[in-house]
Design a protein around this nucleic acid. Sequence first.
DNA 1: AACAAATGCTATATCGATTTAGCCCAGCGT
DNA 2: ACGCTGGGCTAAATCGATATAGCATTTGTT
Lengths: 344, 344
Amino acid sequence: MLSMKGISIKDIAKQAGVSPTTVSFVLNGKAKEKRISEQVSKKIQKIASRLKYKPNQLARGLRTGKTKTIGLIVEDIANNFFASLAKVMEDEADKHGYKVLYGSTEDNTEKAKGLLEVLKYRQVDAYIVTPTKNLDKEIEQLKATSKPVVLMDRYFPHVSSHYVVVDNYQGAYNVTSHLANQGYKKIAIVTITSDQIQMKDRLEGFTAALKDHHLPFNKSLVKKIPFELEREAFNTEIKKFLTSIKGLDAVFFATNYLGIYGIESIRSLGWEIGPQIGVASFDDHDLFRLHSPSITCVAQPITEIGKNIVEVLMQELNHPSASPRQIVLEPSVIVRASSDPGKK
Amino acid sequence: MLSMKGISIKDIAKQAGVSPTTVSFVLNGKAKEKRISEQVSKKIQKIASRLKYKPNQLARGLRTGKTKTIGLIVEDIANNFFASLAKVMEDEADKHGYKVLYGSTEDNTEKAKGLLEVLKYRQVDAYIVTPTKNLDKEIEQLKATSKPVVLMDRYFPHVSSHYVVVDNYQGAYNVTSHLANQGYKKIAIVTITSDQIQMKDRLEGFTAALKDHHLPFNKSLVKKIPFELEREAFNTEIKKFLTSIKGLDAVFFATNYLGIYGIESIRSLGWEIGPQIGVASFDDHDLFRLHSPSITCVAQPITEIGKNIVEVLMQELNHPSASPRQIVLEPSVIVRASSDPGKK
DNA sequence: AACAAATGCTATATCGATTTAGCCCAGCGT
DNA sequence: ACGCTGGGCTAAATCGATATAGCATTTGTT
């Protein structure tokens, strides 16, 4: 009750018998530089900590243009992959005194634009963006703002920007090769309708692996489903697809949610995962680990990704570099029973 | 590049040939009230939309004390339950023009205090808090700030505050009764070391159901595990516990992560879930739905919870009420094969 | 015609911090 | 005694918006 209004720099100045300017200098560690005496300096520090002074970030932000806030735009915060990443990034950002404002795009460009807009006039210092389809223009404009932007999970090949991603091509290639090595002969892929680089890379990794292993490939082995469908519709589509392929003996799902829907679909078809149909998914998930049979996947190094993103951001905030930092991390294939029935 | 600094109210004023005050009145819908002529009003509106003017939220916040930002403190944003809820709340808040700043406590009171501190000096307008053990004092202090606070998932019985929770007692009671009705005779519970109301209620609902069904109950049927353990340790503890009980034929896990660890543990013991040992968990999860056998659970109405929380918050922001809004929603038992082997 | 009331708009202070420019005084040299 | 230097501090402007008080000018009343 005493402090409904919060302690301001003026209150400290008054108590210390000095000007607000002096208080500001001292509390910003500029005492030496601004030649404030030890005495006064100590006194101010003491009063500030006694009053538990915390600078009003709005006022500071208004004056300095820095809000110590990062805007985070993900595809879907309810998705385990993004949520886990958000946690890591929150932790890392916190170490540097930054807070995170988040939003989900649902892979919808209009929503993404809206989020960027809002974050902009909330004056965030930097952006972490999982871009949607046509967000390239906005990203370029953002770059002109001189606020750091780091793309995650995907990027635009024709836009020079910072990004942290995994090697989607290699991940898909490796897991598909693994399926081939296990003896699966006719392998299909279920992905989402998206021209974005991460999906393109996964698809290309998949097809390259098929070619290298001299396995059949044609368009009928590829199913693209729109992101925005409901669960029911996903399952319907997947079942229709899987049953349409003669001799199909394995399938690769290109995202975690597709993997989940896929498992559900396959089971409702009554097929036996592993012996009858090999299954692999991109991204790991508790479900994949504990499903019976457990599901082979391409796991992304989430902690590493998150740490890298924030690290790049912090470096750019402190010393903007001329050239973009583009980090590609290696995902790892986790072989489980769905592609190797011998496994538990 | 043209607008590195952003458009301010002054720019509009200059172009319109009026004062900033007038512009502010018009753009805040006070044209009528402040008797600004239609002509001028229209002109200003036009210029504002041509320049795509967006008010600087920092400046506005500094002046008005309202930041249109909600502070969200959850236990763990990487946990499916909290992440899904965060998504719903973000959506709802967005409808009212609010953004969300989030943080995870890891059920650690010091972290929670730190988060409250940070959110406070970032001047959030309202708080949604999943409180930790000893956060009652801070919550009371927050109330004195006259910023709305809504607790979620749990609350303090001795603190009069707004909250939105589910009926944990009833949920636990119902699912335990269900186990009893299925013929399970010796039912144990695995919960976390926590005196907090939600865990207490779940435990009490559990024991009450045992009594009502004339099933044995004693302390050896209750296992409490500290939240902060690693996965390995959780599994070790759970296995030790389950194997220590003679004649055990069912177990109820009091949170989703305990359920997940529990499934893992039971399977590594080689026990057959369902016939040999009945299993149920609090909270639903993709894993529970798709596990073989599928896992019976007490599902919380996530969308409803999230909407209620934001609704209460908005009402309190608009017309603070004297009495606390305390909403208790009903969870539902979803019966699956882990407690009813007949089910698929 | 004289005065009151309404109309339409603006000057200025303010929120709480940072930053620039510069004041005052002591000590020093010559 | 005068100017110069540097130490120690502060006044005032500023960020961009909002809120208060009030100034002209027109309109209405009798």
